[in-house]
């Protein structure tokens, strides 16, 4: 196999762009969350650093980097240091399969706006999101603290349960698009978005991704009222920052996937594709923040019952119904 240097440069360029945009967006999502929550609660939010508080993420970054980075007595050294990275890296890796715009044509060179167009793209997403579980589990376990361990056991159980309904809710999408390749799934929605055919699957997927990124009402692994801060209780400085940023990267990535699977990816009238895609991602991010400002937390047994006894059976019935629909349609 030979490699064209232009292709390699293009791929490296795309990776750099994705990293830059996602990390910046994640930092500003933290800021946006504080602002929107403040707006919902009728207060001002961060407004001292820079105009409208726009430089707040930078100030937070400086604070996190200069804070003391300590390790509790009896913690498992290597796993304690590795866990934050294990939580953040899979999240950003998932973005490599998401098409974020229509293919560009520059100097008779077609550039797909996607880092890797794998024919198992959807499965790669499921694989990486199941790997991200280790960050939560090992982080809490390696801290050698009761609260952190309780948080990570909750996190493990929750992530395993909701991964199941998330995977099952994507089966109808694959049945309609007849492909695991994300660019094919987007192309199949050029006429009509899948949310029209699959409103139930969309709802199940939306609830499951809220649980996957551990947002209220599913934030039991880090419930501050009961577990101090859950699995990242013992982390400080930039290691805590990595867990935190990882969560926001997760919101962006899962929002992008929800847009790709159900809202037609970058398809949309008038505006350029990239704008449509980012608009959809930001809409999902706003929805998550809005939900956080509105809903209370579930109880742990309610969470488990809801996942196993409501979402999973519903997703299975939905797969069956989609199968019948496709067979009868011919």
């Amino acid at each position: 196999m030979s490699y064209d240097p232009i292709d390699i440069a293009l791929i490296l360029g795309k990776i750099g762009l994705v990293f830059f945009v996602i990390l910046t967006l994640a930092a500003y999502l933290v800021f946006a969350e504080r602002k929107v929550l403040a707006w919902i609660q009728d207060r001002k939010g961060p407004n001292r650093v820079g105009p409208f508080g726009l430089l707040q993420p930078l100030a937070d970054l400086v604070k996190l980097l200069t804070k003391e980075d300590f390790r509790p007595v009896g913690a498992d050294k290597w796993l304690f240091y590795l866990a934050p990275a294990m939580a953040a890296i899979p999240a950003i890796m998932i973005f490599s399969v998401i098409p974020f715009g229509a293919p560009l044509t520059l100097f008779s060179h077609t550039i797909p706006l996607q880092v890797a167009d794998l024919n198992v793209g959807l499965l790669l997403f499921l694989a990486l999101s199941s790997i991200a579980v280790y960050g939560v589990a090992l982080g809490g376990w390696a801290s050698n603290s009761k609260y952190a361990l309780l948080g990570s056991i909750r996190g493990l159980a929750q992530l395993i349960s909701y991964e199941l309904s998330m995977g099952l809710s994507l089966v109808p999408v694959v049945m309609l698009a007849r492909s695991f390749r994300l660019s094919d799934i987007v192309a199949a929605q050029s006429g009509c978005w899948f949310i029209v055919y699959q409103p139930l699957a969309f709802l199940i997927f939306l609830i499951s991704i809220a649980a996957e990124c551990k947002r209220i009402p599913f934030d039991l692994p880090e419930a501050e009222g009961e577990l101090v801060a859950g699995f990242h209780t013992e982390y400080s400085g930039m290691r805590f920052g990595l867990f935190f940023v990882g969560e926001y990267i997760n919101i962006i990535v899962l929002g992008g996937l929800a847009a790709t699977f159900f809202l037609g990816g970058w398809h949309g009238p008038l505006l350029p594709p990239v704008v449509w895609f980012s608009g959809k991602v930001l809409a999902f991010a706003f929805l998550f923040i809005w939900v956080r400002g509105t809903l209370p937390r579930l109880r742990y047994d309610q969470l488990m019952h809801f996942g196993w006894k409501v979402l999973t059976p519903l997703a299975l019935v939905n797969i069956l119904a989609t199968g019948w629909f496709l067979v009868l349609k011919g």
Partner: peptide, 9 residues
């Protein structure tokens, strides 16, 4: 992918 999803995940 099955290796990662089923065994590791």
């Amino acid at each position: 992918m099955f290796e990662v999803i089923i065994y590791a995940g």
